[in-house]
Design a protein around this nucleic acid. Structure first.
Lengths: 158, 158
DNA sequence: GCTGAAATACCGCGGTC
DNA sequence: GACCGCGGTATTTCAGC
């Protein structure tokens, strides 16, 4: 992983549909070598997938909530069971396992509050491993991407 | 937007690199009509972009923190200024404007704690509009996607 | 062995029925 | 919705360093 690879990743994190030639010319690399690097990055699994990003304002009835969850002192088994439950729910977009008194932060996307309520009852209230949870409602998601900043990474590798 | 469109979006949210023929055969549609629908969804802006998702475990030194920010009672101008600041920072991956006592929840990605500290000083401490902020450290991001659940949406449109 | 250019194959795209 | 033809892009192969 050299600077060129980092530059390629930065480009593809912004727009994965641009041609290898376009990426190459932006970073000063031929289309062929650029394509070879991309292929290698995919093989290595550094590039995991490519996905379409939807504009939620063009979709009806999308609400986002952020839920903070504190677990009972259960064992590792209880932890994993809860993780599985949350992982398998499509409405749970993101799930972070935290250090500190709060165990999970989850970002939930539903079509309305009633749907959130149903989900909350099913996933949070009825789970005996969950001691406490608090819900915050998002007014507007101003920025939502999964880009990993790679600028500093370049400097580190020198 | 009918069921077919919804199915297409679900597919492309998982893998945007599959061919129109592949998508079509999965949902029972010809490649041509599938392609026409995808084009329309892009024109309408429902499909905003396509991006590469990186595997952070294959990248060195990535830490994630979740910061909750409470603003001083400033006007709209102060709010917008702070929004701009946060929006323009590459290390801020996600920025949610919240209802309730906390004004923003932001997800920050940096290469190490020192880098976070520097960012935190620059963005949070030195911003006089920010009254208070609390930082939670992520141990492990178990699930991170931006997929919008579309199953229920199907039912709504009947 | 790695890089850049040509050849091939594939896919997206528009038009037409 | 299906068929066909064009253009662009990815992928393979080959020549040169």
């Amino acid at each position: 992983m050299d600077d060129f690879d980092v530059q390629i990743l930065k480009q593809l994190q912004t727009d994965s549909r641009q041609s290898t030639e376009a990426v190459g010319s932006k970073i000063g690399l031929s289309a062929s070598s650029c394509q070879r690097r991309i292929k290698k990055l995919k093989q290595q699994g550094v590039i995991q997938t490519e996905v379409a990003i939807l504009d939620r304002s063009k979709l009806p009835n999308i609400i986002t909530t952020i839920v903070e969850i504190t677990l009972e002192k259960g064992g590792e088994q209880a932890l994993n069971a809860t993780l599985d439950d949350l992982n398998n729910e499509a409405s749970i977009q993101q799930l972070y396992y935290m250090a500190g008194d709060i165990d999970f932060v989850v970002i939930v996307v539903t079509n309305n509050m009633e749907e959130f309520d149903q989900l909350s009852r099913k996933l949070f209230m009825s789970n005996t491993n969950i001691k406490k949870f608090t819900t915050k409602v998002v007014i507007k998601p101003h920025k939502t991407n999964l880009s990993i900043p790679l600028d500093k990474l370049t400097n580190n590798s020198h």
